[in-house]
């Protein structure tokens, strides 16, 4: 980015805006809610990381089944991706939380099981819904990525006598991931933007914390501004992280 005169002016304007926000808006609630805010940010990041990792692990077989599997595997994988991508995440979340949540207590053996203390809370449903959603979108991305690896590479590996799992682990998967990496970065940002939905099923992430501040103090704009800044910062970290990942691998692909 070059510093043209108009950019210096824009930066000064932005700085003035920040100073104005800091001085004339109400921030006195901030110290009191700081621990809660930190907890909220931690929970948002935790949900993002867990669901993105689990979702990606699910997406690999989904993509593989669609790219190379027999139709018995490819058809269900395709149907799963279509359904997940064709319905709103909020609906999926509420279906799991309210639907399963109202179904489980009817069975005594579930109530008696060791999992019950967890199933009564909201976060397992949030993690499940977000994981399935990420898997659905990424399954489609991985399908394209698996297909885009040149056949010659796989044939060469086969000719060297590599077993199929070794081919997948050493040749196919690394190259597919490398090709999908730019898309994955964008999709992870989208996943971050989907996390505040979990606040609607009583998981206390940073969005829910901001909502509580607004309810407690009747301050309208300041918590929302804080929220926007927090999400922009996390997005910035994600974008930089993925850029670093992309540069770390050798860029040359045959």
């Amino acid at each position: 980015m070059r510093l043209y005169p108009h950019r210096i002016l824009l930066i000064l304007l932005a700085a003035a805006l920040v100073v104005w926000c800091a001085v004339s808006l109400r921030w006195d609630w901030l110290p009191k809610y700081l621990p809660l805010i930190a907890e909220g940010i931690w929970r948002t990041v935790w949900i993002l990381v867990v669901t993105a990792v689990l979702g990606f692990l699910l997406a690999i077989p989904l993509g593989l089944a669609q790219a190379a599997g027999p139709w018995v595997l490819a058809a269900p994988a395709r149907a799963f991706c279509t359904v997940i991508r064709g319905t709103p995440l909020l609906l999926q979340l509420w279906l799991l939380y309210y639907g399963l949540g109202s179904l489980f207590p009817q069975y005594p053996w579930i109530r008696g099981s060791e999992l019950w203390p967890y199933l009564r809370q909201a976060w397992p449903y949030a993690v499940l819904a977000l994981t399935l959603s990420f898997a659905g979108y990424e399954g489609e991305v991985m399908r394209g990525a698996f297909r885009s690896v040149p056949r010659g590479q796989l044939e060469a590996a086969k000719a060297m006598g590599m077993p199929r799992l070794t081919i997948l682990r050493r040749i196919w998967l690394p190259q597919a991931i490398q090709r999908a990496l730019p898309t994955l970065g964008g999709e992870t940002v989208l996943q971050l933007k989907a996390t505040p939905l979990v606040a609607t099923i009583t998981v206390v992430d940073i969005y829910a914390v901001a909502g509580r501040v607004r309810q407690d103090t009747f301050i309208v704009y300041e918590p929302l501004l804080l929220l926007a800044v927090v999400y922009m910062l996390i997005t910035g970290v994600l974008v930089l992280g993925f850029r670093w990942l992309e540069q770390r691998r050798p860029a040359k692909v045959a």
């Binding site: 933007k193 969005y207 309208v220 704009y221 926007a228």
Partner: peptide, 20 residues
Amino acid sequence: VVRAVPELVLILILYYAVTD
């Protein structure tokens, strides 16, 4: 900015703040 901030937050900001 629009692509970095969740739609939900933008909706709240624009819905309440702009009306106000």
